[in-house]
């Protein structure tokens, strides 16, 4: 009686196990060897050139058809805004996919940093999404399909740059919101995103990622006093497609100085590898335990439990 169910169960669990895990491991392995699309695009942000004019914010707002801001884009008082007891500067949200913040290191001119999605080569948001809403396009953008977004907000947990925001204000259509590199309207036709196009200071350079890396290192070499020797985003978290040149250590402009060079997916691979092993080993292991325990009981198997017996009898009548 129980033999049949065990056999059936084993067959079923192997089938389910194979179905649920093969997909997972295959993708994880592919992610491990992924070194980016060869000709994908990126942007190099030169913090020494940015003057904090906020025209990129305005351009983004227009291009992405976002709601009007509370304060106009030429109002520079936003740089004085702080949040959460003065610990936080402005961040991206559902109505602003990019913001510029001002940092004032002691004894130096203010430095402005533009925040937007950095379009990782191996995006954390993509790897954490259980409905596969995110796509890394061959042009380099990380885009998403809001029509399947369930609203679990795991991508927001996963994003090491705290970029994705959520449309909390919407009751029936709440989805994740973030910069998509103007993929739909510009990037896929080879055009730079709206923010880059409007920048009056050429603080943003649009180009192939591999060329931008060369440009970045060249600038550092040509002006060793102007920059710190680091292209932030070259290797960080598996590499990003938006990269930064900074005149001061990156932690002073609000970056995590040591995010590690591993993409976020590497941190969950260990667990994903455990899954097929548990699915494969546990059935035999625990059915085996059961058989061992049963054998030990011997003849006592039916004596120990009068209730069971009683139930069975009751059931037959």
């Amino acid at each position: 009686m129980s033999g049949i169910s065990r056999r059936k169960f084993l067959a079923a669990s192997v089938a389910v196990g194979a179905a649920t895990t093969l997909g997972g491991t295959k993708k994880a392995l592919a992610a491990g060897s992924f070194s980016g699309y060869p000709n994908s695009m990126g942007v190099l942000v030169d913090l020494t050139r940015c003057i904090g004019c906020r025209s990129c914010e305005a351009a983004c707002n227009k291009e992405q058809k976002l709601p009007d801001p509370n304060l106009p884009f030429d109002d520079m008082s936003v740089f004085d805004q702080t949040f959460h007891h003065g610990t936080q500067k402005r961040r991206t949200d559902e109505s602003a996919y990019t913001v510029v913040n001002r940092y004032t290191p002691e004894g130096s001119e203010p430095i402005y940093r533009k925040v937007q999605c950095n379009h990782c080569a191996e995006p954390a948001c993509l790897s954490s999404c259980f409905v596969n809403a995110y796509t890394k396009t061959k042009e380099g953008a990380v885009i998403y399909d809001g029509s399947v977004c369930v609203g679990c907000r795991n991508c927001m947990i996963a994003c090491p740059f705290n970029v994705p925001a959520y449309s909390y204000s919407s009751a029936f259509g709440a989805v994740v919101k973030k910069c998509i590199f103007c993929h739909e309207t510009r990037l896929k036709d080879g055009l730079p995103p709206a923010c880059v196009e409007i920048c009056p200071q050429e603080a943003l350079t649009f180009g192939k990622r591999k060329d931008l890396l060369k440009i970045g290192h060249q600038r550092i070499q040509t002006h060793p006093g102007r920059y710190i020797d680091r292209v932030y985003g070259e290797k960080e978290l598996g590499g990003t497609h938006w990269m930064y040149l900074s005149p001061i250590p990156v932690e002073e402009v609000g970056f995590d100085p040591r995010p590690g060079n591993e993409p976020i997916i590497s941190h969950v691979k260990e667990f994903l590898g455990v899954v097929p092993m548990v699915l494969a080993i546990w059935p035999a292991l625990f059915t085996g335990f059961h058989l061992l325990a049963k054998n030990q009981e011997g003849h006592g198997d039916h004596e120990h439990d009068t209730e069971h017996q009683h139930d069975e009898e009751g059931g037959q009548q």
Binding site: G24, A31, S127, V150, I265
Partner: peptide, 16 residues
């Protein structure tokens, strides 16, 4: 949309 990961749009490499 909770049934989406079950029947509609699969993200099998995600822990969730």
């Amino acid at each position: 949309r909770l049934p989406y990961p079950m029947f509609w749009s699969f993200g099998p490499a995600a822990v969730l």
